[in-house]
Amino acid sequence: MDAATTRRRRLRGAAWAHAVLAIGVLIFFLPIWITLVGSTHDTATIGRGDVPLLPGGEAIANYTAAWNAGGGRYRSAPAGLMLGNSLLMAVLIAGGKIAISLISAYAVVFFRFPGRMLAFWTIFLTLMLPVEVRIIPTFQVMVDLSLVNTMAGLTIPLIASATATLLFRQFFLTIPDEYVEAAKIDGAGPLRFFRDVVLPLSVTNIAALFVILFIYGWNQYLWPLLIVNDRGLETIVVGLAKMIGSGDTQNEWNVIMATAVLALVPPVFVVVAMQRWFVKGLTETEK
């Protein structure tokens, strides 16, 4: 009898928790669902102002339009091209940041050189100066270097900050000195040690950071908006915003939503793919 009461109480508690979670899921999922559904109707349906909750039959037409031509009345760029640009930019930013951070953290942790801590704190300070803060001088530099409207101009200022250096430094500090010493006795030089020991041990961290930095890069808005006005270099996040006209133009919401769905695919793919990687890394390596 007593047990039955506790069981009922526990069940009620579980029901509550599930209800709250279900509401949470709904809140997050509904806009995505509306976007997904919206991308399968024709312009008129959405233009009328109803919000359809069930998929329509125009999916193929909308997605082909978005992929090949883009939408919007105002200077459209095809989503295929923009996705390619975004992908390249995000990969360059994530890869570049990881490469630079790995190397600088390696230098700061494993070598004794004059000004080591000064170097570290200087790197650390850049954390407090994201692109948005230094945007005007950075833009000037890019103009002077004629990097406006180039992939280099788009990515380099975003790479050149120390987000991951600190994280790698903390991780490298946990690598026991004995590995360094064993490697010295084995005859492995600094680069060899980096490649054969430090990198493989950092795989988990690299995977996790890649996910975070890829999404950081993918979502960049202000800097690409400023530095790129060649539509051939347009990124999808900026392009998507530009598709939405202002004033009395009729927006092609169906195509915009199709583009939005397309813009979601690569980040989601990266998260899902890399998650498998770093879960594997977590269970298979240890220090």
Binding site: P176, E178, Y179, E181, A182, K184, I185, D186, G187, A188, D196, V197, P200, L201, T285, E286, K287
Partner: peptide, 27 residues
């Protein structure tokens, strides 16, 4: 150290955790 032709066994062994036993010995 590498030029002294010595080998050292550490207290906590310092085996490289990501390498197999073979690779550790062969490194």
């Amino acid at each position: 150290p590498a030029d002294r032709d010595i080998a050292m066994v550490f207290q906590n062994y310092a085996l490289y955790p990501h390498m197999t036993v073979f690779d550790n010995m062969a490194y």
